[in-house]
Write a protein that binds this DNA or RNA. Structure first.
Lengths: 193, 193
DNA sequence: CTCTTACTAGAACGAACGGTCAAGAATAAG
DNA sequence: CTTATTCTTGACCGTTCGTTCTAGTAAGAG
């Protein structure tokens, strides 16, 4: 056998994620990454492949480790509607609080790289679809438990919340009045009762 | 005096807009622009300044000429609520129809260049604020004309619609089921009655 | 200890980047 | 027609891009 790695690939990947998240794909150079990651250029290429491979891996990691984890939040037992409401509220507060205004990396990736970048497109679509599914599941449960009207359309409501959340993440990039997002969220939540 | 320009700067600017809109800021090179614009490199620099100046001017142009023009749509006399509903529907259909999935250039600019790029941040904020104002104005009118409940909060509703519209534009970048956006819009519109 | 293997550091690669410059061409004032 | 001014063309600038290559180094197998 041979020499062992001197760094933890997972830790390095998260540092790469940090940079790509903040600056986007094109605006982040391999030189930036080498400097920020603390490993050699060749080690970077040997471990993760080229720039695009690294970006895709970082984006995959983002989906895994992001907090709040919406799927998990919506899967708790008990009343389902409060979970949805809390989710919207947490997205809102996170969009407002986010000091360096990185926004949502999925949204950033979608607007920068779609529609031409297929690997990224797949990741984005998967992320959105799984959130839609989780929301739909929760809302079906909410309807069954009498938390929302029996006539409500869970999937359509889920899609509505999904789209609204993406809007929150975009507008969180601005440095406008925090009340703007809070007002918007309050109105969106008024739909869910 | 001296020689006259051989090209129409406005027409050239719109060609630049086309490219920046499709590919974003970083991914569009000056070489791409020179080729696509049909004018010399030096003419480009002499007329518009550097790459960033050109981008900002293209973005300004985008705000001016975009169709549908939301401000205009919301300023028509008569019933105000249908105008708001039509606006949401047109954004939805445009997000779905948009064949080359360029999305909204304001959204693209916000996610790619904010928060560091101040000139772009100003443009984005102005665009969003003016749309919010137009929506608020229309909804105040709708309330006065009895089209929505007297207890409704026009500004909060406007902010809600504003955020939702940005979400539409983001998710239009994906190539998912068109029904997703239509369902979402239908639910959002259900709020406005 | 020796050998093999995979690691690290950093120089080096051609290509592409944004931007500038020099020379010639066209136009309007005098 | 002459002249002054601004345009166009295209070569050219140094820098930075993503990527590869070359040495040298560390560690387990035999």
């Amino acid at each position: 056998m041979a020499r062992t790695k001197e760094f933890d690939p997972d830790a390095v990947l998260e540092r790469a994620l940090d940079l790509f998240w903040r600056r986007g794909y094109e605006a982040t150079s391999m030189a930036d990454l080498v400097e920020h990651l603390g490993i050699g250029r060749a080690s970077l290429y040997a471990t993760f492949g080229g720039k695009h491979d690294l970006y895709v891996k970082a984006l995959e990691r983002y989906v895994q480790i992001r907090d709040p984890n919406p799927i998990e939040m919506l899967s708790q037992p008990g009343p389902a509607l409060p979970a949805v409401r809390t989710l919207v509220e947490r997205y809102t507060e996170e969009s407002i609080r986010d000091r360096d205004r990185r926004g949502c990396m999925i949204v950033n990736a979608a607007t920068e790289l779609l529609p031409d970048d297929e690997p990224v497109a797949r990741l984005v679509e998967t992320s959105w679809t799984s959130l839609e599914t989780a929301l739909t599941t929760a809302l079906i449960r909410a309807r069954a438990q009498g938390e929302i009207s029996a006539e409500a359309d869970p999937r359509a409501l889920a899609r509505f919340v999904l789209v609204f959340l993406q809007g929150l993440r975009v507008m969180g990039k601005g440095h406008g009045d925090p009340a703007r997002l809070r007002d918007a969220a309050a109105q969106a939540l008024a739909t869910l009762r």
